[in-house]
Design a protein around this nucleic acid. Structure first.
Lengths: 258, 258
DNA sequence: ACGCAACGTTGATGCAGATCAATGTGTCGC
DNA sequence: GCGACACATTGATCTGCATCAACGTTGCGT
């Protein structure tokens, strides 16, 4: 953890009950989060004992590359971006995290990337050594973490294909398609997407400049693929054309994590 | 497993003893491979029982994207490339594997990428369900796999930075630097690198064309950064300049897996 | 209401790297 | 030795996206 330390709220309500996202209860959130799989009651109560919940403002830095990796997180709400930087300031965003995504799963001494809140976000924080102790107690959790890690690796490989071999239009279509799939998983309307990140974030995620992102959006609008009410809300009007552009074939399934 | 099935040699020598790489003994190789960490004797004997060793020719396909993921592998010798393809044939190589590298760690139903031998290669093959049964027996192995998986994820993120934000010269310098670090780990001469892969493989790994790879090598030669005896053997004459180009800062440590 | 700052869009121009094309260079089979 | 093939290099030209520059839009503090 570096820079501005956000408010840390110890978990006070250990009772697992469904709660709305805007009043998240860490324990029940953990239980409900699909990414965690079905946790057993004793696992939940133990997780509950080690978790703290925190909320960070948009733009807040959670940690930067090279910081000691002292905690893992689950995103409860909001959007987090992960990024790597070159000495001269060029930046590559390696992923956006949303509700139910894991952060800091890399079991290494130091974080290999920085993490920053795109929008105001709420997270569960697990001190590293205590989560690892918990893993000793519940070895089956380890298998699930390995599975999550595998999914992230698959996503990373998809992203390499995108960055190395796709055109600007294909990149942007892939990005929209990915966001759409995630929205569908969360049972929100997959046709109507929020874009909490700004154009420079999208550009740095896709290996493009903000101007190219903007121009490509305009091109999509003119072709009837998408429409905008506000710059941060896009409607996908022709999902098939977008999927085609993205290089998605019928048989393909999207990697679950972004 | 798809296409040309290579010779599969059941392991006949269960005695763990040091052996030369050109006459690999799967069990002792597993024990020696640093990536596995220190395996305990009973783990080795059990691994020994489920492993089969196989040798594939250069250019042979191990599996393609979408094949059922029915096995894991450890590379004992040679070089394997992993790749993803777009419908129109554009290709992105997501990694090269060398001795001691794991292959197929993704615990998913189907392989998310294809794998092909760059040079003649020898591998240990672990049927998926039997390795998973073994993991139940030795939960500590799972932690090590998670650690390996984390390293691969970190490498993938490095590669995203490379593909999205580096110039051709920086990409090629990063590639050489990475190979050099790997050679140093293996205690071979890190100044003198074999390039078993051809230019089109390097190009598809770095998101470049073969022409750009070739021109950049020429530029490096003219600047005194590298020299060639054969096209597949490069000598790094100015490792500092290469590291500088690659964007490697003093404090950085290379991610262990490529 | 105003000014200012942050973000997004649009236009003009430049260039890194792709593409197209030809020419080395090494290796293998005969 | 010699052709044939695969791979690498070099050159000429093209182009997709970056860069440079201006303007539009929104929201916020005073």
């Amino acid at each position: 953890m570096s820079t501005p330390t956000p408010k840390i709220t110890p978990l006070v309500d250990p009772v697992a009950r469904p709660g709305p996202v805007n009043n998240p209860c860490a324990a029940c959130a953990i239980r409900d989060l699909s990414v965690c799989g079905a946790l057993k009651p004793d696992e939940i109560s133990r997780l509950n004992a080690i978790v703290v919940q925190k909320t960070v403002n948009a733009g807040a830095t959670l940690f930067i590359e090279g910081d000691p990796a002292d905690a893992h997180y689950i995103v409860l709400d909001g959007c987090i971006k992960l990024y790597k930087m070159l000495p001269d300031g060029r930046r590559q965003i390696t992923g956006f995290l949303f509700r139910a995504d894991f952060l800091g799963l890399a079991f290494r001494q130091r974080y290999a990337y920085g993490a920053e809140a795109v929008s105001t976000a709420t997270l569960c924080r697990f001190p590293r050594e205590r989560l690892e102790a918990l893993l000793d107690e519940f070895p089956e959790m380890e298998r699930r973490l390995l599975s999550i890690s595998s999914s992230e690796l698959a996503s990373a490989q998809d992203q390499m294909l995108l960055l190395g071999r796709k055109t600007a239009a294909e990149k942007l279509a892939s990005f929209l398609w990915l966001l759409s799939k995630r929205a569908a998983l969360k049972e929100t309307d997959w046709r109507r997407l929020d874009l909490p990140m700004m154009r420079s974030d999208i550009g740095d995620y896709l290996g493009l400049t903000i101007e190219t992102v903007s121009r490509t959006f305009t091109q999509f609008k003119k072709s009837g693929l998408v429409s905008f009410t506000r710059p941060d809300a896009v409607q996908l009007d022709d999902i098939d054309a977008l999927a085609e552009l993205a290089g998605v074939e019928e048989s393909w399934q999207p990697s679950t994590a972004m």
